[in-house]
Design a protein around this nucleic acid. Structure first.
Lengths: 217, 217
DNA sequence: TAGATTGTTAATCGATTAACAATC
DNA sequence: TAGATTGTTAATCGATTAACAATC
């Protein structure tokens, strides 16, 4: 309800502030300034201030923000206090990596169940999360009113798994496969574009190399 | 050298175009228009045209682009023809997931070696990539002139692993751990901010929910 | 030719950064 | 008080989208 018009970019940064604030020593100073946060995270201080102003009561000039208040405000805003449930499809390496990523709980995401087609995996658990056969997916999502699906199946299986999620009434899909999914309107697909990240990284590297090599000319 | 001023966002999209173009049937039509690509990938057609204009000789009005030429141009531009070498630190679930992600080769990235501290893992291989003890890291990077490091260690080990990469002469670090790394100037850190993605996803979901619930009021 | 499609120029939009007044 | 820090208003920057002429 508080979700007025906080830009996406701010949302992306909030977890970073939170992680930094939590990493500070408990017995350290009670206050922290936007300037210090910005320096630690290699950001612009005005940006930090602007972000924080959107979700918190605000700090005091010369003193800064109360660290614990800030942590509480960010967590509340990101909805880390009331946990969301999700299911995961594809218990391969990537799927297992996400299942064992304890931090998701901290972020308010709890993975209720995982699904796979491999009979060898079905019935086992990863980090206490049971792995179930895919044909139970739609039914379980509906019964438990789960709205988030995490897709970590191999490329070829992605669309079928996606369809099953949609059938189960999923509203948002976090897609780690490199496939462009076809979904009915109204369902949000969030692609984790690793190839894209790699391309940007390579670009920066080659610019650096060009500069380095030009010296020799 | 061709790297004039192609924006980052274009770089992120190029792999998507490429994947789509490659997914088309070999024996299908030889030409494809920006309009069709845009529709398939849920993008704006002018944007696609603009992106393609930057890296390709261009298409012909009414006809479109030659599919195979476009594939060749994108691959060349992204440097997928001359492969870059990388090392990976942390052969846990996420690390193994990336190691078994065959697609990286397609993207021009080859992981030469992986490193871990766990004696049980050292000496084994994942998808033909050997896992070596971390103390060999710096030396190997330097000897093989490797400039990309992929960081998939647990949170607490991240900074130490990062320092080892820097010592080995790495120029870019692709960081999958949620830690803010401290690196000397001139080294590029690329954070894969999963918590951020999750936050944006949750945001969209809660906006949706608010709207849905308002109907009941 | 007519209509689809390209590529470019201009307008818009959103996000970041700079400048500055307010305040403790 | 003086100086550090906040929050806001305006300027800048970069990316997307709209409008349109060129062309096959």
């Amino acid at each position: 309800m508080e979700t007025k018009s906080v830009p996406s970019q701010t949302f992306r940064r909030l977890p970073q502030y939170l992680a930094y604030l939590k990493s500070l020593p408990q017995d350290g100073p009670a206050n922290i300034s936007a300037t210090v946060i910005a320096q630690a995270l290699d950001m612009n201080d005005v940006q930090v201030r602007k972000d924080l102003a959107m979700i918190s009561d605000g700090g005091r000039p010369k003193i800064g923000y109360v660290r614990t208040d800030l942590i509480r405000d960010i967590e509340r805003f990101l909805g880390y206090d009331d946990t969301r449930s999700a299911v995961l499809v594809g218990a391969g390496n990537l799927g297992r990596a996400l299942l064992s990523y304890e931090r998701f709980e901290e972020y308010g995401l709890s993975i209720a169940a995982a699904f796979d087609t491999d009979p060898a995996l079905i019935g086992t658990t990863v980090h206490k999360t049971p792995i179930l056969p895919v044909n139970k997916l739609a039914d379980l999502c509906r019964r438990l009113k789960i709205h988030i699906g995490i897709l970590t199946v191999p490329d070829v299986a992605a669309q079928a798994a996606c369809d099953a999620l949609v059938e189960g009434g999923i509203l948002a899909i976090w897609n780690f496969s490199p496939t462009q999914l076809r979904v009915p309107g109204g369902i949000l697909v969030f692609n984790e574009n690793m190839a894209g990240s790699l391309a940007v990284l390579s670009k920066h590297l080659s610019i650096r190399f060009c500069r380095a090599e030009r010296r020799d000319v």
